[in-house]
Design a protein around this nucleic acid. Structure first.
Lengths: 153, 153
DNA sequence: TGGGATATAATGGGATATCATGGGAAAAAC
DNA sequence: GTTTTTCCCATGATATCCCATTATATCCCA
């Protein structure tokens, strides 16, 4: 599997560990990711996550902006707040407390696949967020502008 | 065969497994699909399905949008709700319970070929849906402009 | 063109492997 | 020396693999 797909609800144990969903692990391994990178979302009360590949792309993208622009500075805060977690032999990571607090997570984490990246949510918050997004998508009339096809025009 | 055609009714066994129709499997294999992707339909009480190829295109398309745009977020909900199922040695997949619930499926699934994709329906719901669609097509007088021909202009 | 023989398909069930999770002990940090 | 982290093993649930059975479709040859 090459992309982060689907959602998974896993438990945070008393030591602060969580199992990374097996399918997410296989995506990360394929990226030769030495682990997994998390940072607080600046749009939502959740945690954004990805592998090394994606972070590298983000760094390159930011680098392409004007060096001292406000935009570049804002985006650089993502890098400053990011954490690199190593996955242990059982497929788990230690969740930093401040990130859990930021997302309002207590004992269960929703892993949400978004293709090239993923998010971690508190289950109820995610349910609300998902409903809102789906509703908006439906109201607008969702269309998939597919790459590499005539309809893409 | 290169496209998903015809309809097939297969049983969901007590373990939640279903045989993917052999002709659908051969289409997926031709795509080098390691499996099959399912997600709840936006428009109907049924499950949409396709191969890896199509999802990969979708991910690439979304990736081309601005990383934190609303449009990208709406489209990502599809990825979050999608499931990748692997086809076992006997040509079967494990159906996730929530998808079965969404489509109201209990013990029999209708596989409906739609060319480049397909749908899974509860048999009675599909019969009703099919009648309605056929009736509408007849009332309107259906026409099909074929691609790649003079008439296409 | 029959009509039996041989694939292919769908389905069922038991054995095995994988995954998520919990807890203890060793190692490292403070 | 106490706390925190890392490593290792145990467990239950669930998915996966493997084999058997049946039905249908395809093939082959008289």
């Amino acid at each position: 599997m090459a992309v982060f797909l689907s959602t998974f609800a896993n438990k945070v144990d008393r030591k602060g560990r969580v199992s990374v969903p097996a399918s997410f692990r296989s995506v990360l391994e394929r990226q030769a990711s030495s682990g997994l990178i998390l940072y607080p979302s600046f749009k939502h009360p959740c945690i954004d996550g990805c592998g090394d590949e994606r972070i590298q792309e983000m760094v390159d993208s930011i680098d392409r902006l004007d060096a001292f622009s406000e935009e570049a500075e804002d985006l650089q805060t993502i890098l400053a707040d990011a954490r690199q977690l190593t996955i242990d032999g059982d497929g788990r990571v230690m969740m930093p407390k401040d990130l859990l607090d930021y997302a309002g997570i207590s004992d269960t984490i929703m892993f949400v696949g978004l293709g090239k990246s993923f998010q971690l949510w508190e289950p109820d918050a995610y349910a609300a967020h998902r409903d809102e997004k789906r509703k908006r998508a439906r109201d607008r009339g969702i269309t998939l502008p597919m790459a590499g096809r005539g309809s893409d025009k």
